[in-house]
Computed example of a mutant assay.
Amino acid sequence: MKQAIEPSFAIKRRRIGFTNFRAYPHKRLLEEEVENDPMHEFFSTEYFDERTMASVIDAIHSAHADKGIGGGGDVFDARRIAITIEYIRRHGLSTGFCVEIGSLKYLSSKVIWSCFDAVNLVGTRHDLRRSPMPFPDNFVDNIICTEVIEHISDICYEQATTLSGVFFFLNEAKRVLKQGGRMLITTPNAASLWALQAALLGQSPMMYEWHFREFTVHEMKQIVESIGGLRLVVHNTEFVWHLWNFSHITEFLKQASFSTSDRGDDQFIVIEKDDSIEAIPHSLNLPRKEPPAPSIKRRWSLSSQMLMAKARHRLWPKSTIQRMKSY
């Protein structure tokens, strides 16, 4: 009879009722403990810098900003922010005209950009699913999109997701990027060790239940490649939140001949605009039905501002416009 494997402390904690793991982050290993941990080979990354981490923690404590980072306390997100800074720094994502997707008032945004000097940066407030980005074609040098893409829902949702919002957003990002411009995307990894452990415990493997969709590395690669004109520069997974002892999971994966690579809890993707890259059709199991075209009345309502502008310039009589809008 095989001896039962003693579950890790992380599993024990979840079994006794701590369902909100973000409220109890202190099981995570301290940075100085990582080197002596059996998970060191998984946790180590060239994008972690101790000085950056120290700067991030100081900036978090001194910043006056909206958190925008979930409910795990101020320093819970510190490692992710520190690693994000290194990706931005090492891949030249802070030069020229930069756009961050989302508000610049969030804590993570303020901390990230406090580590860079004189960045020409703007945030966004538009509907990513359907509204064009408010920039001309080939205008933006770099785009930063951290922990956003998993929130983008469909424009038209009927029986199942088509990811129409995600595809629209990525096409818009490609449109506004200059040739050679870059974009950083970070998003949870749906096939991480943490997600596998959550599923084995009978819990939702979603990082947050209110995310619209979380993606695996394979899925994100296919999504980016299906756009065309975008070259994958770097696509890694990093352990940014859960520095737990997952050795019971990794041993099982090895014994069953499953891959242990790309099992970090967050994906870091750097893409570059390159018009010579052809689109590769994805094989994601999405509905093939195209979303219904807007009605004539809907099309006119969407164009009402343009029509009224023409009326003001007397290109069309107002009576004509009113008749057209009533269809």
Results as ranks from 00 to 15, higher is better:
267 Q>W: 12
320 T>A: 04
165 G>N: 00
57 I>F: 01
320 T>R: 05
278 E>A: 15
76 F>M: 11
139 F>D: 06
88 I>H: 02
254 K>L: 15
300 W>F: 14
273 K>F: 15
259 S>L: 09
231 R>W: 00
188 P>D: 06
27 K>F: 12
294 P>D: 12
34 V>T: 14
241 W>R: 09
172 E>S: 03
35 E>V: 11
151 H>N: 09
40 H>C: 09
294 P>C: 13
306 M>T: 10
298 R>W: 05
197 Q>L: 13
248 H>E: 13
249 I>Y: 04
298 R>V: 11
281 P>W: 12
38 P>T: 07
291 P>N: 13
156 C>P: 00
192 S>L: 05
133 M>P: 02
320 T>Y: 01
164 S>D: 11
254 K>H: 09
18 F>V: 14
266 D>Y: 07
54 A>Q: 11
83 I>H: 03
146 T>Y: 00
171 N>S: 01
81 I>G: 07
184 L>G: 07
216 T>A: 10
97 F>V: 01
144 I>T: 07
127 D>E: 12
187 T>Q: 01
176 V>R: 01
306 M>C: 03
97 F>Y: 08
13 R>H: 10
273 K>E: 15
305 Q>K: 10
285 N>F: 09
109 S>Y: 04
238 E>T: 08
130 R>M: 08
14 R>H: 05
69 I>V: 13
6 E>G: 04
41 E>V: 11
206 M>A: 11
64 H>R: 12
288 R>M: 12
55 S>H: 07
181 G>C: 09
253 L>T: 04
317 P>F: 01
24 Y>E: 11
147 E>Y: 00
312 R>K: 10
262 D>A: 14
81 I>E: 05
229 G>S: 12
252 F>I: 02
264 G>W: 15
318 K>T: 08
15 R>W: 13
95 T>Q: 03
270 V>H: 14
224 V>N: 06
137 D>T: 13
147 E>I: 00
55 S>P: 01
221 K>M: 06
53 M>H: 13
257 S>C: 10
225 E>D: 12
238 E>G: 06
84 T>F: 04
198 A>T: 04
21 F>C: 05
244 W>P: 02
317 P>T: 00
203 Q>H: 11
225 E>R: 13
100 E>V: 01
183 M>F: 07
50 E>V: 10
127 D>Y: 01
267 Q>Y: 13
227 I>T: 10
182 R>P: 00
232 L>W: 03
85 I>V: 14
190 A>L: 09
298 R>Q: 15
119 V>P: 00
178 K>L: 10
153 S>M: 08
261 S>M: 14
265 D>L: 10
232 L>T: 13
11 I>K: 11
